[in-house]
Design a protein around this nucleic acid. Structure first.
Lengths: 341, 341
DNA sequence: TTCTAAATCGAAAACGTTTTCGAAATCACC
DNA sequence: GGTGATTTCGAAAACGTTTTCGATTTAGAA
């Protein structure tokens, strides 16, 4: 019921709380014998330090905050797993918040985390975010922030990302090298950097291989919780441009929508139209044909983001200068059935 | 850089911290005029109370802990979304921990949460857990616990669950009513209650409809991160019992494995063998044929678990007697292609 | 025995709030 | 101008630790 505190141990032993505290923390100015007595008594009363009091005194909470823009699904669930595992390993707890792609939410949540005195925060930006003063504020208040996946280049902090443009470039180059000639792109909405970068990669790959870019072959799928977008745009593109022979989709989810439409409409994948996804979500192996895609290392991203953050926390604590890092995790093409005839 | 505290406001205004604190908290013994001055000054210095100090003084953290047994995927990701949404709405933060189905982890993590002074904890038991003293300890220390999904009947606390046995009974009854006669069951491992209950529901449904239970038609799939188990056992059962006409799988994941094997082996689903899943994960609509399954309301489970927990926290704080609730969320059959000829 | 150095301990301040309780100031009223 | 009631404020304790620094005791050396 009532948990035991230092003073309980102290009075049970007839010594002071100072001595008890020091004994428990291994200070050298406590004799072996009293240290032993304290430890034994602490165990028998199963003492656990009150973290809140410790936090107040030491000014650190051993807790990090995480703000993700979207519901915990697919890619972010991998990242989250990486975060949880690494944080546990390094002795940190993690508080999760989701901004639902709203800038105001994101801002409020970041302020809340700082007020809660988390030691640092990991965040992936909402689609709406184009003002970064809240992040700069946090950093100025000595709460380190590391951005992952959906980042802003202009913010001066560590970041861990993939090279979306390069990955997209690779994907489209792969398709071209496979002999596909008229390649469409189902892109995401216009704001987020990932969406822009993947589109740019698509465009550059075409140009690099002497294929003229045609904006009419680009469709936008901005709903990222469902595959309906991919499904409907697939239907649309096949009436408007029935002669395409491949589609590079911004996401496995829209790729799945495309394939579902093709399967229902009797359009053969990849024989008539190949489909290339992005992220390597679990379901890309359950769809038939299995989806060729880009492996986006979410788990590792979470891992390294935590690792960098905790290092920066330590740097700040020891008054060392913190060096921001930009880590670019490698992606690779996972070739499956949807692109090989 | 340095955040402002009560004393900064106080000395800027030439008044005491007591007055500042009271003004900010709306005490009635502060005059309108000084209250206004305090509020204005607080805003201009953008004061945010130090949560750690508040926590220490008020003995509550407005934080709840969540321990889930498995990686944040599929079902648990829905629960988590429900938890996060409701917790946010009620002004609580949430700390997530995963036990990886290990009892020792679970125990350690629960102790950690209590030490961190979370106001309550939500947990879903690991498969290994068969000693519940850690949970009883928590409750005895006045930290309310509510169990969800994977629970223990013997623990005296609130629980939110589905009726696995009934859901399974319904599923198998549905198959029988559809005319399927030789129905196999791919069950989970022997320990967890869900697995046992679903198996029991299967068995009872057979008996209730005058079909003799045959233990040879029950295969165990205890890997819950992959669909290989379902795939391999599907292969096995079709050589050992080629005359079955339906399989009730403990999980959509194993159902997907089954269907994948059937698709590859040219076994028609549902014409030769129908497949029934469990949970209604996202991928059950991406597989072809689409999977008939049981809808397990993860999001709502998270929602109500948080709701109950926060109510109990309030009860304890107000010294009201807390009444434990056992909430059984309804499930329903989602009929799709894999069972309708 | 006396002096110095080392070993061992504890008082007290501090972290930033909240809240109780009493003091001071103001007001109303005769 | 005196009395009592009301309004407004602030000192201080408390939450449970950690850590500094000085005090006391013990050991060692002469």
């Amino acid at each position: 019921m009532n948990d035991t505190k230092l003073i309980d141990i102290a009075s049970a032993l007839g010594i002071s709380v100072t001595t008890v505290s020091k004994a428990l923390k291994g200070y050298t100015d406590i004799s072996k014998s009293t240290r032993a007595k304290v430890i034994e008594m602490a165990e028998s009363m199963n003492y656990m330090p009150n973290s809140v009091a410790v936090n107040l005194r030491t000014n650190e909470t051993k807790t990090i905050g995480v703000i993700i823009p979207a519901t915990v699904h697919h890619f972010f669930s991998s990242v989250l797993n990486g975060i949880l595992e690494e944080a546990e390993k390094r002795g940190y707890l993690v508080i999760i918040l989701q901004s639902n792609e709203k800038y105001e939410m994101e801002k409020k949540q970041l302020a809340l985390l700082i007020q809660k005195r988390v030691d640092g925060v990991l965040m992936s930006l909402s689609n709406e975010t184009d003002d970064f003063s809240h992040i700069n504020d946090a950093i100025r208040k000595n709460t380190p922030v590391v951005l992952f996946d959906k980042i802003a280049k202009r913010v001066d902090c560590s970041k861990v990302v993939i090279n979306d443009a390069k990955a997209a470039f690779d994907a489209v180059s792969y398709l071209i090298n496979k002999g596909y000639k008229k390649i469409a792109h189902f892109r995401g909405s216009y704001v987020p950097q990932n969406s822009i970068d993947r589109f740019l990669g698509y465009k550059r790959a075409l140009e690099a291989h002497g294929i003229e870019y045609d904006s009419k072959l680009v469709y936008v799928c901005d709903n990222n919780t469902d595959f309906e977008d991919g499904y409907e745009n697939a239907q649309k593109i096949m009436t408007e441009h029935p002669d395409i022979d491949a589609i590079f989709a911004i996401t496995d989810l829209v790729a799945i929508g495309i394939i579902k439409y093709f399967n229902e409409a009797g359009i053969k994948t990849p024989d008539q139209v190949a489909v290339f996804g992005f992220s390597n979500w679990f379901m890309s192996t359950v769809i038939s044909p299995k989806l060729t895609t880009i492996d986006q290392p979410g788990f590792e991203m979470g891992h390294t983001a935590v690792s960098i953050l905790i290092d920066e926390i330590a740097d700040i604590k020891e008054h060392r200068k913190v060096e921001h890092q930009i880590i670019e995790l490698p992606t690779r093409i996972i070739e499956r059935e949807s692109t090989v005839k």
